[in-house]
């Protein structure tokens, strides 16, 4: 979970927009290699939005729990079918 400041309100002007572009790139990579892009999310919040932050964190934790352990952890634990990346063997 990556949290950046609100769009248009970044101390580094466009730092949060660039960060989002980079997060989206990582998300695409995770999707392509079979780990699942939905394991990474970016939220934009101000420092004063504690309640919203807590809600986003809960939502994200629920989503991760729903997805279960990552394919890497399943393979390490010897209890999962190996994931197949796009492009396959």
């Amino acid at each position: 979970m990556v949290v950046g400041c609100l769009q248009g309100d970044c101390h580094y002007i466009s730092g949060n927009i660039r960060a989002r572009a980079r997060v989206e790139r990582v998300l695409a990579i995770l999707g392509k290699i079979g780990i699942g892009g939905e394991r990474l999310r970016m939220f934009n919040l101000s420092a004063g939005e504690g309640g919203k932050f807590a809600a986003f964190a809960r939502e994200f934790v629920d989503s991760i729990r729903e997805q279960g352990p990552s394919p890497v952890n399943l393979v390490r634990a010897g209890s999962g079918q190996p994931a197949e990346a796009e492009g396959g063997r």
Binding site: L30, I33, G34, I35, V75, R76, P82, E84, A85
Partner: peptide, 12 residues
């Protein structure tokens, strides 16, 4: 990192 993750997830 990408290749390691992908290959580990694939069990190879």
């Amino acid at each position: 990192s990408t290749l390691r993750l992908a290959r580990e997830a694939a069990g190879r």
